[in-house]
């Protein structure tokens, strides 16, 4: 476990809590090496999260995250918390990138969204008339890349909780901590995000000819 000086007090060696009892101290160089080891292990996961949150800006977002995490290494009190800590920094770097690009939350009529049911829409539109597993056939038209593209149609406000909970396995309360928002707010965003996701699944399928292809 790491505790002690942050980036503003770089002259002092960093004390590791778990070895403090035997008096072991880490020099700055050793501390940097430990950070490299921790972060290197997490690179595929971090890139995966960023890819789903900011698409093609993922590499830049992970670079931002690594630099920010290294500067704030003193905030990490427990090495076992490093994966969650790095993910938390990354999510905020991704959100910063979204803001810099001026992406605004989409205008949504939530009354329409609330009433939308993809299940009913598929049943009503019946895109595969000869299918006896209509709904599953609809989902099978989507590759993983398609699903991630659908998510990119959602504003960051709804995309972030959906990705973290349903794709990365974070608990709602952990997402609330990362986003510094009340749990109730995250639950409401998840609810609306799921509805928007369903709606965008349908519009993506029609925009990209997935239903036409399947009907052939």
């Amino acid at each position: 476990m790491i505790s002690g000086s942050g980036c503003n007090n770089r002259a002092s060696p960093i004390r590791l809590k778990d070895v403090t009892q035997v008096g072991v101290l880490y020099t700055e160089a050793e501390q940097a090496e430990r950070f490299r080891l921790l972060a290197r292990e997490q690179l595929p996961r971090l890139y995966g999260i960023a890819r789903k949150l900011v698409g093609s800006d993922a590499e830049d977002a992970v670079q931002d995250c690594l630099l920010k995490a290294f500067r704030n290494l003193g905030q990490l009190n427990d090495e076992s918390a490093a994966p969650a800590w790095l993910a938390s920094i990354l999510v905020n770097c991704c959100r910063d990138r979204g803001r810099t690009k001026g992406r605004r939350p989409e205008e949504v009529n939530f009354e329409d969204v609330e009433e939308f049911s993809l299940y009913r829409k598929i049943a009503y539109e019946d895109p595969f008339p000869y299918s006896d597993s209509l709904h599953l056939d609809f989902l099978e038209e989507f590759t993983a890349e398609d699903v991630r593209s659908v998510l990119m149609r959602l504003s960051e406000l709804y995309r972030v909780p959906l990705v973290l909970v349903y794709m990365e396995g974070f608990l709602v309360r952990e997402v609330a901590e990362i986003l510094e928002a009340p749990t109730g707010t995250i639950l409401a965003r998840l609810h609306r995000g799921r509805k928007l996701f369903e709606k965008h699944m349908w519009s993506y399928a029609t925009d990209h000819g997935l239903l036409k292809e399947a009907a052939r």
Binding site: R10, E28, A29, Q31, A32, F35, R36, A39, R40, L43, P44, Y47, G48, R51, K52, A58, E59, V62, Q63, L66, L67, F70, F142, A144, E145, V147, R148, L162, Y166, M167, E168, F197
Partner: peptide
């Protein structure tokens, strides 16, 4: 949604990110 969570990291990206880590100096 769960199945779409797996993302492959291109080798070149992984190399550049690893280099970023190597370049970090206290």
């Amino acid at each position: 949604l769960e199945r779409a969570s797996e993302v492959d990291v291109p080798d070149a990206v992984l190399r550049r990110l690893t280099q970023t880590l190597e370049d970090l100096e206290p």
